[in-house]
Amino acid sequence: MRIGLFATCLGDTLFPDAVRATAILIARLGHEVVFPPGQTCCGQMHVNTGYQREPVPLVRKFAEQFGDPSIDAVVLPSGSCAGSVRHQHPLVAERYGDAALRDGVETVRAKTYELSELLVDVLGVTDVGAYFPHRVTYHPTCHSLRMLRVGDKPLRLLRAVDSIDLVELPEADACCGFGGTFAVKNADTSGAMLQDKVRNVLSTGADACTAGDSSCLMHIGGGLSRIRSGTRTLHLAQILASTRTSPHAFPKTEAATR
């Protein structure tokens, strides 16, 4: 298959390792990775903050970049961005777009998938041949869970990983408190939500907390880092991309290498 990869603005800029892992995983599974160079951002931040006119060009760009019929499927290593393409792009196109945009959005959203959906539903794999000999706990991000309804697909993928020690996260389905600009506009409430998530992550004794969305991981990771917990965050793709031949290496901070 020719699989279009949308890096997401956050992934491209701040968390390239997660996107790199997604690309490597797809290539290892025998598929061609297509990266349309004109891609930037899905516009989720705009819509969620109340702006629906401003992201029209972003919605149009996404439809243009991935509308190419030779692209069989589009994958996003982010549950919330995939949710935005599926649920918010039609809203924006309907309200502020033209007929061409509405058609374009309809075509592209039907072949857009979050990573675990692509692997399990489209490619039909749950064991991707990964090897990850570490203790891991999984946080099912809100938009993957309740907007996309990915269900237990990420967990099925993780359970099939060789040598993984997967431990259940208490109160897993509770929001970590990120919510995009919510974490800035309502920083106190968001922080209170984060404290409970961090406490639950630490109670598992996991080496890493994983999820299918770099934005939620940035939030949880920011909390774990602030208290110097020693527990890391890792995108689901990074665990699935790790193999016996090329195992995942936790990056060393400069402090550790000094």
Binding site: A7, G11, D12, L14, A183, A187, M218, H219, G222, R226
Partner: peptide
């Protein structure tokens, strides 16, 4: 560990990682 307003609420309880040297697209 510290951002200016209006983002200071974030860094009250959370760190933010520095952007890595290479974006995904330049690596690719």
């Amino acid at each position: 560990s510290r951002l200016p307003a209006p983002f200071d609420g974030w860094t009250d309880t959370r760190d933010l990682p520095a952007p890595p040297r290479r974006t995904f697209r330049s690596w690719l």
